[in-house]
Design a protein around this nucleic acid. Sequence first.
DNA 1: ACCGGCCTGAAAATACCTTTCAGACATGAG
DNA 2: CTCATGTCTGAAAGGTATTTTCAGGCCGGT
Lengths: 309, 309
Amino acid sequence: MSSGVKETFSRRSATAPAPPAPAALAAKVRTLAPTMTRSMQRVAETVAADPAGCAALTVTGLAERTGTSEATVVRTSRLLGYPGYRDLRLALAALAAQQATGSAPAVTADIAVDDSLIDVIAKLAQEEQQCLADTAAALDVTQLEAAVAALSSARRIDVYGIGASNLVAQDLVQKLLRIGLIAHAHSDPHLAVTNAVQMRARDVAIAITHSGRTTDVIEPLRVAFDHGATTIAITGRPDGEIAAYADHILTTSTARESELRPAAMSSRTSQLLVVDCLFIGVAQRTYETAAPALSASYEALAHRHNPHH
Amino acid sequence: MSSGVKETFSRRSATAPAPPAPAALAAKVRTLAPTMTRSMQRVAETVAADPAGCAALTVTGLAERTGTSEATVVRTSRLLGYPGYRDLRLALAALAAQQATGSAPAVTADIAVDDSLIDVIAKLAQEEQQCLADTAAALDVTQLEAAVAALSSARRIDVYGIGASNLVAQDLVQKLLRIGLIAHAHSDPHLAVTNAVQMRARDVAIAITHSGRTTDVIEPLRVAFDHGATTIAITGRPDGEIAAYADHILTTSTARESELRPAAMSSRTSQLLVVDCLFIGVAQRTYETAAPALSASYEALAHRHNPHH
DNA sequence: ACCGGCCTGAAAATACCTTTCAGACATGAG
DNA sequence: CTCATGTCTGAAAGGTATTTTCAGGCCGGT
């Protein structure tokens, strides 16, 4: 029978430096929801829906309220990145205070079919702002730092992205090219793999996929990984199978999705913020060469504009 | 002996009118300081001086830090109006969160070369959020409505964009294709013009340019305009020369630019919001056909994912 | 100096949180 | 359909953190 593993709960594994999220809790719940079991989801949702109320409850109280057991509450707390329920409760109190103050990420209504365009504009802007805030709060600085370091000294950079993520890949590549790095964006999976075979140490491969399960993107990353390149994954599912082949994982926030705005579509904002952070970080590190390159490309573009007016 | 009173501290007397103070803790400490004994004052002051730090401590920890005992810490908590230390600690966490939020909006400065990555993340997110808010506020609903109407009944849609704006163009096209419209993104100026010649009434041409002066984008729009197509410009300069050939103008916000983050880069966020609004608007108008198309494309993509858990 | 009251912290008692463990449930293979 | 396998779950045992008790010590008054 079972034996062995049990529930280890690695209290503070050196690999998980994840800082307990202060305010972006609702986002974290959404990101991790797929990983969770039914009863854990109940707990997570209850907590996200009413932080203030839950902060007043003890483990037993919350277990009763959610119709689960204390053990499940603790398990959920762990999954959300806290050492235990005690700390989740503290974070909950903090979140409640922020919400009350007005810096509140209070819930927004979905975009509906019969919304007026004015409402659509407001809701879209609101959602994207929220998405940015969540991403910024959840971004792991350690991972980002490592990724920036790898990029800064890279001999060559390949970026894999399909569909919407391909645009983000192109965006990153455009930026990196501007500061004199050698970067390529791949959308053709076959060519991507073909190129990945050439990768070796000091080269960097970046895969961008919201789901973390896009085979066409995972495959080239795996090949690059196997050939000794440094690999980076930008994904909304840090627990996805892509994690197995990524040296550094940058987690994007999973925005609320609605019928008119599927997740794949709204992940873009989050991915772009991560990409921008990467770029700025690299530009800082390589400022000596990046700054002249930036102004040079600016100069070059000026000639493509009509000087009239 | 002693007998009688002891430390009663009515655990939860129904008469207790003292609501646990949320934020005005420092004031309460000052008010009650004269009432307190020496060691209690030490505790109270420590707590008022560093709420965040104290929130992380257990009773024992705080007792040690103040050089007193657990009992004293609990007594102080009671005097401040809480049932016990546990609740004081929650309030402390809440207070810390409020303080952190209050001092947060001080990050309006430009991104500098020597900023830490943490600052970079915060500033970037902040800037983009601002950009979204600005764009939403400035967007002309009338123009947007007209643009949506034109797109909804378009026979064919061409989108022109160069450089960073080309990615936005591709993003729009991807979305429109998903709901069954016929759309193309052009980055090659010559091909764009060649195609523009084919445009006529009921066709829609969209040009995306931040500066409003990108000749390579203006030219195809002009040609489409001359051939009777409905033309839309998404630009940060509604007074630019592109305005002459645009039936409808959607204005994007011009974000603050800095050396590390040129305007061309930050305009993207704004453009994408406008594009999203266009898309949602069209999807609403053509909901009958758009909804099935959206789910169909979702289904189709599901097969490209690895089902492995 | 002696007495009485109050402050204080060590230690006991309790409440709360965490872990363990075995049964319940689902899932896929034979 | 049945069984094997693995996962999910809550009850109860096991630990910590918090609260309460209680006795010693400090201080001012006489």
